[in-house]
Design a protein around this nucleic acid. Structure first.
Lengths: 209, 209
DNA sequence: TAGATTGTTAATCGATTAACAATC
DNA sequence: TAGATTGTTAATCGATTAACAATC
């Protein structure tokens, strides 16, 4: 299945559907129409039906969607039940907060290692994972084959570290380093998170009415 | 000036331009053409010129753009030199990491207060700001008139807290609470950050080639 | 002046919305 | 069966790209 043909606009909405449907499940909804869902989510009903039909016909005419089934289906599309092995590089403020704050298992990942260059941090435990010296990364990757890395390191080392990790088999990066990673192989997946950019759009909003 | 007519696609690219131009300044560039910038940023030259001309003609035919001037101009459009007073609600893992990690002053904000309901945390200092009991928020807001709030609180209290803060004059929210805020007054600016959603798009990528 | 590169208009492309026949 | 609501095609809208005349 060439799901890669699905546009990124649609893909970025999937986690949102997943979240809302999870909430609806918990609230005891068993069925919902695209119109009802559109009112709750602020999308149009048309868009919801259009989006879902990129992946198959989950609804039933005259009835709507089964909330639980749809939630499960979207979870499967996203791959939230996978256990993609993930390591984190950089256990500073942000790194350790993310390690503790994100429920990796519920998002399709398993945190198997945290690395830092600061000897003070090595040996400490964060989110149940021991912090290891970065010097050990190569050995660790060869032995444990992580597929994804969270980068919480300064921007000047981000590209170098990412390149090294690609050579060690890492296929995806969740990058918090204030630097836009550019990867050679286009099969490498990168999600650059720029919290500062997000904040600046707020400044823009306040600055311009 | 009805800058509000500028599309959000453009606005979301502004911080990126700002970052790249800052880097170019530091690297000693004095001028740059839209073509050169397009190669560095991965946009098209056309888009760059189109984007910039939403705000005015910053370039010069036959020459290109003055890096320093353009950087300054975009900074002014974003309002990075403002000192929008900002408070943070919730000093847990994520809240305190963000307070320490983000350079608010460089983004147009000034962190003037941090609030938490945990008595353990009250009195502690984070990023040079003392953590205060949430019970004090009303008094604090009346006295100090913050215009923006960062929400690092559980999702079930997010909407209630946001509504209360609106009544106290807060105009903008940077919301990390795993819940999509819906505000009555459409003048209230909300930036919902969903780190989990961002991570799930990575899971999707790994799950689908 | 000639060359380069902008600002801007026009063309294209993609994403969103509307409409409706199919069908539960 | 009649009513509701989907899946899907067609229409609209907006954003991106291309082209080029203006001009430094």
């Amino acid at each position: 299945m060439s799901k890669s043909s699905v546009s990124s606009s649609v893909i970025k909405r999937l986690p949102r559907y997943y979240r809302f449907l999870g909430d609806l499940c918990r609230k005891g909804y068993t069925r919902i129409s695209s119109r009802e869902l559109s009112e709750k989510m602020g999308f149009t009903a048309s868009q919801i039906r259009q989006d879902l039909n990129c992946f198959g016909g989950f609804g039933q005419q005259g009835y709507g969607y089964n909330v639980k089934e749809l939630h499960k289906a979207i979870g499967d599309i996203l791959g939230v039940n996978a256990e993609n092995k993930l390591i984190m590089i950089g256990a500073g403020n942000l790194g350790s907060a993310i390690a503790s704050h994100i429920d990796f298992r519920k998002k399709g990942f398993k945190l198997i290692g945290i690395f830092d260059s600061d000897p003070e941090k090595c040996g400490q435990e964060i989110a149940g994972v021991k912090v290891t010296d970065v010097a050990e990364i190569r050995r660790f990757c060869v032995a444990n084959k992580p597929i994804c890395a969270v980068l919480c390191i300064p921007k000047n080392s981000a590209q170098y570290v990412a390149n090294s990790l690609v050579d060690l088999g890492v296929k995806a990066f969740w990058n918090f380093s204030h630097y836009d990673l550019k990867m050679e192989h286009e099969s490498i997946i990168v999600e650059n998170v720029h919290l500062g950019d997000s904040l600046m759009t707020l400044a823009y909003g306040l600055n311009n009415q």
